[in-house]
Design a protein around this nucleic acid. Structure first.
Length: 570
DNA sequence: GCCGTTTTCGGCCCGACTGTTTTCAGTCG
């Protein structure tokens, strides 16, 4: 059984226990264990065999024996028993915003409701309003919640959240009562997908901020409006929460609302052991309630003896321990990424000419730009014949005379099912660099697919493996490959792994990038732009690199031109 | 259910908003 499957089962147990009204901390213990398992790097079956389950924090005697039972028998009597007591379907009701364990249980006990459909029907017929703790408004809210759930099943891609978030920040900044303002939450941490947007403001006049916020032209529905917190849904369907705090609490609140939750729990534990208390208003002495810090985040971290931790690192993946010892990595800065390797032009399926791309690159302050169009066999994307590729190289050489930005002539060469390449060595050699990429036959078995990719990487003219797992967020599962093996070969052959910055790819992702770095593999960021407008996605690739703890030296895009040319080895 | 530099028992992060109440439970993050 995979880690994720086992984690799912413990999440399920937590939900069922919660509906049953079990002790809150027991529920939390199961959730914590599930989360640990989900984010575990080692294979849980392996740990189980070695009898090391108990070494996972949050897993004690009881949960360890349940894991063992699951792995050995494929089922869990405890879960079966729970399901006999509480209908499994009730869990789904808790997905509806506004319905928690208590309401779910009442709905089941009083009206026999177990499914979302039944609940929708009961709301429409006005059957909920007579229940204790429910009213007509509750019915309407639940109906709206169901609608929203169905509409927003998927989280939002980072670019959607990023653009909406920063546009709104610019709008709010015009209010003269805004003293400081920042994005918080998962968007500030630059997670690959975003549930909702959090914005934090410091002001002495919160009502003025909230008035402006709910009047923002893109607001579709106002969900809540108070002087400390308000929530709306924007036209794009994404929810935005704005919170207003006093200036002396801004840093503490920013730290609190940036999360992640797991990171903050750790932070609070450290504070607790020091006799301190951290909440969104500041750091306080536990006994006297004396205010110690809170105006800036730096202050908050310093108060508990930690170096400042960049938002992208705040996932409780070991950053706190390193911050305590002053050993945090110096992660790559956004401005250190000096160009983009992966841009499609009108020669294949891009919408901009090479000249336009070069001009835009210069405007963006790039030192280099890589043009990487599709290869011949990818007919749907107008892949270039070898003949046309030579013409394209000529065009680039000519354009180069008129531009300061270095234009690298490249390709995104298809890897055929047998691992051979779409272009001959003779023509690959003429280019400045070459990507290899999988665009066909995604469903090969693990061994075959891994060998296919390795064979391509072993070609001396291939420099970068494009979007290594080929996943598309919300659309396509990653291909089945042995990443560890691929990273080993990458290190041996000096092949760079791409961090594809296109918002629905983000491939390698943060976890894979971290793993690659730890194995000594270098990476290259590319946007996979098919239009000039896509070129600003570069930031999302850098974000994945930062989330993967990558430093400047790990990323080809930060090298000097000489070093890049040397790395390409032509 | 888990855990331990104050604890093998008694804590476990904690506050805001909503809708229902008429002082608070439920939900959320």
């Amino acid at each position: 059984m995979r880690n994720k499957e086992i984690a799912e089962i413990f999440y399920q147990i937590a939900d069922l226990l919660e509906i049953k009204g079990e002790l809150e901390f027991k529920v939390r213990a199961y959730r914590r264990a599930a989360q640990r398992i989900e984010t575990l790097e080692e294979d849980i079956e392996e740990l189980c065999r070695k009898g090391k389950l108990r070494s996972i924090p949050g897993i004690g005697e009881s949960i360890a024996s349940k894991i063992k039972e699951l792995i050995e028998t494929g089922r869990l009597e405890y879960l079966e028993k729970l399901k006999r007591e509480v209908p499994e379907d009730l869990i789904r009701l808790m997905d509806i915003p506004g319905v928690g364990p208590k309401k779910a249980l009442i709905l089941y006990k009083k009206l026999g409701i177990t499914t979302v459909e039944q609940l929708r029907d009961a709301c429409k017929k006005g059957r909920l309003r007579h229940l204790e703790g429910f009213g007509e408004l509750t019915e309407r809210n639940i109906l709206r919640g169901i609608e929203m759930l169905e509409r927003s099943k998927d989280r939002f891609l980072i670019n959607v959240a990023y653009e909406n978030g920063y546009r709104l920040v610019e709008y709010l900044k015009k209010n003269k009562d805004v003293l400081s303002i920042s994005i918080a939450g998962s968007l500030r941490r630059m997670k690959e997908t975003i549930g909702d947007i959090d914005i934090l403001v410091s002001s002495l006049n919160p009502d003025s901020i909230m008035e402006d916020f709910v009047r923002y032209p893109d607001v579709k529905i106002v969900l809540a409006k108070g002087s400390k917190k308000s929530s709306v849904i924007l036209r794009d369907g994404i929810q935005v929460d704005v919170r207003v705090v006093k200036p002396e609490s801004f840093g503490a609140a920013l730290q609190y609302f940036t999360g992640s939750k797991e990171h903050n729990i750790q932070i609070r534990n450290i504070a607790m052991k020091m006799g301190l208390k951290i909440n969104e208003y500041g750091v306080f002495r536990k006994d006297t309630e004396e205010y110690i810090a809170g105006r800036t985040e730096e202050e908050v971290y310093k108060a508990i003896g930690l170096d400042y931790i960049e938002p992208e690192l705040r996932e409780n993946r070991g950053e706190i321990e390193l911050a305590q010892r002053g050993k945090l990595p110096e992660i790559v800065k956004y401005k250190e990424v000096k160009g983009d390797f992966h841009i499609h032009s009108t020669w294949s399926d891009g919408t901009a000419s090479i000249e336009e791309i070069a001009r835009r690159s210069q405007e963006m302050g790039y030192e280099f730009v890589g043009i990487a169009d599709h290869s011949a066999s990818l007919k749907v994307a107008h892949g270039l014949s070898e003949e046309d590729l030579l013409k394209k190289i000529q065009e680039i050489r000519k354009l180069q005379e008129r531009f300061d930005v270095r234009i690298f002539a490249g390709t995104e060469c298809d890897i055929k099912p047998d691992g051979s390449l779409d272009y001959s060595d003779k023509i690959l050699k003429e280019l400045d660099f070459a990507y290899a990429a999988i665009h066909t036959k995604f469903k090969m078995d693990r061994k075959e697919m891994t060998e296919r990719i390795i064979r391509a990487m072993e070609n001396e003219y291939i420099n970068i493996l494009a979007h290594p797992t080929a996943r598309m967020i919300g659309k396509r599962e990653p291909i089945d490959i042995d990443l560890e093996k691929i990273f080993e070969v990458a290190r041996e052959t000096n092949t760079f792994m791409e961090i594809n910055a296109f918002p629905d790819r983000l491939d390698l992702n943060d976890v894979h990038a971290k793993m690659a770095k730890e194995m000594g593999v270098k990476m290259a960021i590319g946007t996979d732009s098919h239009a000039l407008d896509h070129m600003r996605f570069l930031r999302f690739g850098t974000a994945m690199a930062r989330r993967g703890w990558l430093e400047k030296k790990d990323i080809l895009n930060t090298y000097d031109l000489r070093e890049i040319e040397k790395a390409f080895g032509r």
